[in-house]
Design a binder for these strands. Structure first.
Lengths: 351, 351
DNA sequence: TTGTACGCGTTATCAC
DNA sequence: GTGATAACGCGTACAA
């Protein structure tokens, strides 16, 4: 195969510096001593020729890509930016590259995963983008994977990072009951296979139990963690025969936006008529009208922690298999709380 | 060099199927006819062995990475998600991979660009992440680059995609003057080398001229397109001896959030005392209190257009060198407008 | 400290 | 249609 290549290779450098390619390679990778004068000569030639090592060739020779991948459903949520930001910080700190792809086995299952052992050294997978079969397959190859916002299938030892959902939700629902006297609290679920949603619901049920309030399946809606779906679901709920309600846990902050709109259209006031609370403390939540009471999830930290774990895995350091990051409730006005200190800013500028 | 490699290669497939690697390669790439029975045999062996072509080796042989890169300052802005989303859609549609990196020559200039000809087939560069020298260097190598939200240095033929800033800003400022009778309008700049900010300022000046209002440099502040910086800058402005003002163009929507807070703390009402307008129509802008009057910038489309151009470049199709996407003003309440139609939703759920 | 020579997994050219 | 084999650019035993 005779191909002309315009780019300058390590061979060109070696020839101009009158040394062997091995010596140039050693100089570049600093993995074996090179005499002072030879080093200087190579350095100069590299500059003159504007030599750049060819990443792909290096990858093939070393069998390492120095790249990690992130697989995620989509990028439309407020969740995405802080998560990616946390990941990217750790990745660049480790001098690695980051490949991102949107993928969901439910819609893409006919297609192979765009990111995997063939082009990365490790993978971060968000929620249920990958199914159990895919995870099993990766596990069998001992390919480094860290799961984000989901736990690992029991037979696989895949580390994961998620946030504490249950206790925080329980605390928030208890707050609605104890402080604001709410007793008919709607719970909006997220996407069906979402673990966060499952644990939040457990917290909700626990809080009801704790206060002797019977669980009513009529008060369970599906907001899909999404403003549009939540809006539609809540409109349908209002339109049909429904039990009375005085509060809503929207599932997440994005869904709260849709609920706000539906309530507004129905002429219901927040928080006077209905308390509304969310989950995540997204970037916009404190700017909603009224500001949203919610649970703060350390999304940036979820990303950085997951990435750090992935590097531990890649470098074969011992790791923590389960990471549950702490959350805290943030009381604002939508639940009925008021700022007692009038000097406290309505708008939080610095987060 | 003797390395044990656990992965199954094209050679293994060839051996098991009793054909040559060339035939297997042809079958995989469908670039030459292969007899029916051989094809079936290869297919079966590939399944049995769970063979996956090695991307890196393929890249080295073809000299193509099937990957494009995005270089961006940081991911903290609301701007980032729709931009990336637009890019990713086109990239995956073209069966390419996307490498993302945060980089800014002003802070990273000691480090080489993590993404470039060595690991991608093309580059998208946001704003002023790369300096002219770096762009010149890439241009010399005829490496495909598309700039986002900045124009190309005049001597380089690098296509770019940005939005119409000047006319929209002029229209918005004129609206403040004509409809709301504002005449002392603060203008907040963005980061100093930001071209968007420059053109928005031209639009501002034109609007003043048009209505015979003298330009006052005392009314020019620097909000940095950032809520925290805008808050601080505006607080300083209020604290010092300053001319009277009755409206503020905040530069972008993020900065408007900081301005909202500072006004609130100063006991000034929006829009009764001061009209506030932004630029971008970020995801949260219609949810602010009051909803923000602004200019809608098609950020998702900026991303998808830039990516599409990059593929044109890579595939050597003819391209449009300059793309200026249209913007439109969005009147909400912060300028003083009210919704005339009471049925119109306060919250826009579907964008 | 340096050079030689081979291997990494694939594509593509050539001959058959 | 098919097979043998030289690239692709670099890393690294091994020998010197």
């Amino acid at each position: 195969m005779t191909r002309k290549s315009s780019s300058v290779t390590i061979r060109d450098v070696a020839r101009h510096a009158a040394v062997s390619v091995a010596t140039v390679s050693r100089f570049i990778n600093r993995n074996a001593p090179v005499s002072q004068e030879v080093a200087e000569r190579i350095q100069q030639v590299m500059l003159d020729l504007n030599y750049k090592p060819h990443t792909t060739a290096r990858q093939l020779a070393t069998r390492r890509t120095l790249t990690v991948g992130l697989v995620i459903h989509n990028m439309h949520t407020d969740f995405f930016a802080p998560l990616l930001s946390g990941i990217e910080a750790v990745v660049s700190e480790n001098q690695y590259n980051l490949l991102v792809a949107t993928y969901d086995y439910k819609t893409h299952h006919h297609r192979p995963l765009p990111i995997g052992p063939h082009n990365t050294d490790g993978l971060l997978s968000y929620s249920d983008c990958l199914n159990e079969e895919q995870l099993t397959d990766l596990g069998r190859q001992k390919f480094p994977v860290v799961l984000i916002h989901r736990t690992a299938p029991p037979h696989l030892r895949i580390p994961f990072v998620t946030v504490e959902n249950k206790a925080a939700t329980r605390k928030l629902i208890s707050h609605l009951i104890q402080v604001h006297g709410r007793r008919s609290i709607i719970f909006m679920r997220g996407p069906s296979e979402q673990e966060d949603s499952y644990w939040r619901e457990q917290g909700y049920r626990d809080a009801l139990d704790e206060h002797g309030i019977p669980f009513q399946s009529d008060l369970i809606l599906c907001g899909e963690f999404n403003r549009t779906a939540a809006y539609a679901a809540f409109k349908r709920f209002l339109a049909r025969k429904h039990p009375p309600f005085d509060a809503i846990f929207t599932g997440d902050d994005d869904a709260a936006i849709g609920v706000f709109k539906a309530l507004k259209e129905a002429g219901l006031r927040v928080p006077e008529d209905v308390s509304v609370v969310g989950f995540d403390d997204a970037r916009l939540s404190s700017f909603l009208n009224p500001p949203l009471t919610t649970v703060r999830a350390p999304t940036h930290q979820v990303g950085s922690t997951a990435a750090a774990l992935l590097f531990d895995l890649i470098q074969e350091r011992p790791i923590e298999a389960c990471t549950l990051l702490p959350t805290e409730i943030v009381l604002r006005r939508s639940c009925g709380c008021a700022y007692e200190n009038p000097g406290e800013p309505f708008y939080d500028v610095v987060r």
